[in-house]
Amino acid sequence: MAEKPRLKLPKEATKGEIIQIKTLVSHVMESGQRKDAQGKPIPRKIINKFTCEFNGKPVFSCVLEPAISANPYIQFDARIDEAGTFKFAWTDDDGSVITAEEKIALKA
């Protein structure tokens, strides 16, 4: 079930400014290590990749393993050289992708 990720970043920045981006997405991050009540292993289901690009250029990405806590929180930075659009994508083991976008303007 795709849900709205939570994002926090400024709406505008001065040229050359480095901003902080906080992201939080709802996901169980089932590690594949656990067993259900009947003792059967619960299959792994995690967000295995996160990417952030700005105006089509890669800013930050990461490959995630089952050792990432449920509801993954990822915080990183970005240098703003121009106004534009951030695109965020979280890829699930099942192939589905949660996406979000956020615009940022340059301060006059």
Partner: peptide, 12 residues
């Protein structure tokens, strides 16, 4: 309140 995962529930 962004990092607090409880807010995912509040928003849902």
């Amino acid at each position: 309140d962004l990092e607090n995962p409880g807010f995912l529930a509040v928003e849902r």
